[in-house]
């Protein structure tokens, strides 16, 4: 115990002898200024806000944060774009199920039918934001590979459903 006491006393005295309090203050001050400025300097993805604006990007019309987006023509579940993910990526902490169901949706911008896969993101409780039910290319459950009422987390590590993404896999021709 005495040895520890001695050790700590010596080391604190050495720190006090070799450093100044003002230097510490100035360093902490500059760190705080730089820390506050850093997020502003980093590049941010503002495309979702751009898409939500009145004049959407030509070729991909609509707001991906509402059910009224063309790619969601057969979605049944919660939109990952409202749950911390995006139209095509799962929110942090969830895993995309590779096994999924695939349908087609028509893009009003070019009138073409696109192949869309509705992969579920799994591993967290239901996101419960932006619940959408659309069945434009869905088929009844006796054709399960074209049905959106199935919990498509069936091939993921966790079978707990969180939200659904809509990935374009090509043009149906």
């Amino acid at each position: 115990m005495k040895l520890l006491d001695l050790l700590f006393e010596r080391s604190t005295r050495r720190v006090a002898d070799t450093t100044s309090r003002r230097k510490l203050l100035s360093r902490m001050g500059s760190l705080m200024v730089a820390g506050a400025a850093l997020p502003l300097l980093l590049p941010l993805d503002r495309t979702s806000k751009a898409l939500a604006a009145d004049n959407p990007k030509a070729g991909d019309p609509g707001d991906p944060n509402t059910c009224d987006y063309w790619r969601y023509c057969s979605i049944d579940g919660f939109l990952c774009s409202c749950c911390g993910g995006s139209v095509t990526s799962c929110p942090p902490g969830t895993e995309a199920s590779q096994v999924t169901w695939i349908g087609t949706c028509r893009n009003p911008a070019d009138g073409k039918d696109y192949i869309i896969s509705y992969n579920d993101c799994c591993g967290k409780q239901s996101c419960a934001q932006c619940a959408c039910t659309r069945n434009d290319s869905e088929e009844p459950a006796y054709r399960p590979f074209n049905n959106n009422d199935v919990n498509w987390c069936l091939a993921a590590k966790s079978h707990i459903y969180h939200c659904t993404v809509s990935v374009i896999r090509g043009v149906a021709v």
């Binding site: 009224d68 969601y72 009003p108 959408c132």
Partner: peptide, 19 residues
């Protein structure tokens, strides 16, 4: 609480015609 499927369900824009 909400009804699933949504009773006010519509087609997605551009997808009104049957496939």
């Amino acid at each position: 609480a909400r009804a699933i499927p949504n009773p006010a369900q519509r087609h997605a824009p551009g997808n009104e015609a049957p496939q």
